[in-house]
């Protein structure tokens, strides 16, 4: 990327992430199906596997998951400037929308149609995240051992109240250990 074309690329990055910000209802997890469509399928800026990696790291590093993931993807596409621009893009719609709502409609969340529309959207987000997980499963659970890691972390995530950091660190160590044993056996 050089000169004018670099500027254009950053502009595309900004708008793509701004668009995804508008389409995200909920937290970072709600952004996952949108990222799969826009970043993996449409733009080809990252693979499904890389997205999984970014979510793993994004959950155990400081900050909002959506921002951490945006910075990762932007950095891969356009270096340091790309990381910053992608993040500015993803937060841009929030700043505009919240400023308008906070300034004009103080009881926005109490409006009946807003509550009803959001209750419908929540159901949809459930289904979209479920579909996203199924998609990730195909890329991340590649054998019996990765299936065991998946189910252990899934159960742990539901029933244990511990930081995701422990699961991520534990799984990374397990990966290294399992692969080492494999090499020794061979």
């Amino acid at each position: 990327m050089e000169g004018e074309s670099k500027f254009k690329s950053l502009w595309v990055l900004f708008w793509t992430f701004a668009k995804m910000g508008v389409m995200t209802f909920g937290g970072g997890m709600a952004m996952l199906p949108i990222l799969q469509r826009e970043v993996v399928d449409n733009k080809g800026w990252a693979t499904e596997e890389e997205l999984t990696d970014y979510y793993a790291i994004g959950q155990c590093t400081p900050g909002i998951i959506a921002v951490n993931t945006a910075t990762f993807i932007g950095q891969k596409y356009g270096g340091v400037a790309g990381g910053i621009v992608a993040t500015l893009g993803v937060v841009f719609p929030s700043v505009v929308i919240i400023s308008i709502l906070a300034g004009l409609i103080s009881n926005f969340a109490d409006l009946a149609w807003v509550k009803n529309a959001f209750a419908g959207i929540q159901v949809c987000v459930c289904v979209l995240i479920f579909n996203a997980v199924v998609k990730l499963l195909k890329k991340s659970v590649v054998d019996k051992r990765t299936a065991v890691i998946f189910f252990l972390v899934l159960a742990g995530g539901i029933f244990l109240k511990v930081s995701p950091v422990w699961f991520v660190v534990g799984a990374a160590l397990a990966g290294i250990l399992l692969k080492n044993l494999e090499v020794r056996k061979a």
Binding site: M29, D53, L136, F150, G175, I176
Partner: peptide, 26 residues
């Protein structure tokens, strides 16, 4: 090798978040 173990764990964490949302909403 770390990412070999990390990917299913990441999917598991997202799955757990999904389960929590499904229980809450449905």
């Amino acid at each position: 090798h770390a990412f070999y173990g990390l990917r299913p764990a990441s999917t598991g964490l997202i799955g757990a978040a999904c389960a929590a949302v499904v229980l809450e909403v449905l």
